[in-house]
């Protein structure tokens, strides 16, 4: 421990992180340079055309709403699907890890369902859920023909997102709970802890790093799933929809802007969660 104030140490750590990032930016910068100098506008759009789109995110594009609106729609969809996946998957995985009977009862179903791509379920979920959105579920009919994000949250889409996210969470949670060293549980037992106390103060914190890994994997999967799902029938909003629609209209500048945004958001998700996990989630629970 050094003697400096925590805030000062945090600032230092922040700049250290930025510095650590720099070498990784060399290749993207080279690609950008090559694009700028060698690509003529006839085949691919020039960087300036793409950056014009990126720098005016609030302007309407192709009558589909602004870039920000479409990004927002995609993000809200992912977060809602992820939320459901977490709420369902964490306790489910915990029970599978802690209870052998429950694991045997559910393992075949989860193993069958896990490799099934969520995209494969999209047509079925459109048939089952139609285009019902959360506006209708919540009975807010006055919103129906306005531009409101609730209109864009189709049940079918949220369902396949939750499907994509729930299995990594179930599996990682299960592994986390099963991987808790027996000696910790025994130590807690002989020191007089009850079952619920052991659950809260031993099993949960000891498996937290694995549970968190599950959440990270789920975020990544959900982000891939939503883009693919938005490119298919069933919606006319979201960054994936904008990507496909701009392709159909041969607006490659918009299309490439969308690709860049998708990549950057995916990057921010994964790096941000890694950072949050290191700081707040006691990843030191790992044996060193």
């Amino acid at each position: 421990m050094d003697g400096r104030a925590p805030s000062e140490r945090n600032t230092k750590a922040f700049w250290q992180r930025i510095r650590d990032l720099l070498p990784g930016l060399i290749i993207p910068v080279l690609i950008l340079a090559a694009w700028y100098f060698y690509v003529d506008g006839s085949f691919l759009p020039s960087p300036s055309a793409v950056f014009y789109i990126l720098l005016h995110p609030a302007e309407d594009i192709l009558s589909c709403g602004s870039l920000l609106w479409n990004i927002g729609v995609s993000l809200v969809r992912v977060l809602l699907g992820l939320f459901i996946a977490i709420v369902v998957g964490t306790p489910f995985g915990f029970m599978m890890g802690a209870n052998t009977g429950f694991r045997k009862f559910t393992s075949v179903v989860t193993e069958l369902a896990r490799p099934l791509s969520p995209i494969a379920l999209l047509p079925l979920s459109i048939i089952v859920f139609k285009d019902t959105s959360f506006t209708e579920v919540l009975g807010l009919n006055s919103l129906k023909y306005t531009r409101h994000v609730l209109n864009e949250l189709q049940i079918g889409m949220i369902f396949i997102l939750a499907w994509g996210g729930v299995f990594p969470i179930i599996l990682e949670t299960m592994h986390g709970v099963r991987g808790v060293r027996k000696v910790y549980v025994e130590a807690a037992r002989v020191l007089g802890a009850s079952r619920t106390f052991i659950f809260r103060h031993v099993l949960l914190p000891a498996s937290l790093p694995d549970i968190f890994t599950g959440y990270r994997m789920a975020v990544g999967r959900c982000w891939m799933v939503i883009i693919a799902a938005e490119m298919l029938p069933g919606t006319n909003s979201g960054i994936g929809y904008l990507l496909r629609y701009s392709y159909q209209l041969s607006r490659l500048d918009i299309m490439i802007a969308c690709i860049l945004i998708i990549a950057v958001i995916g990057f921010v998700f994964s790096r941000g969660l890694e950072y949050a996990g290191d700081r707040w989630l006691l990843l030191r629970a790992r044996e060193r």
Partner: peptide, 18 residues
């Protein structure tokens, strides 16, 4: 068999809390 995610103090407090 100390709990690695707890401080020394929390480890010692564990049986009392339990």
């Amino acid at each position: 068999a100390l709990f690695p995610w707890m401080t020394v103090e929390s480890n010692v407090m564990f049986p009392l809390k339990a």
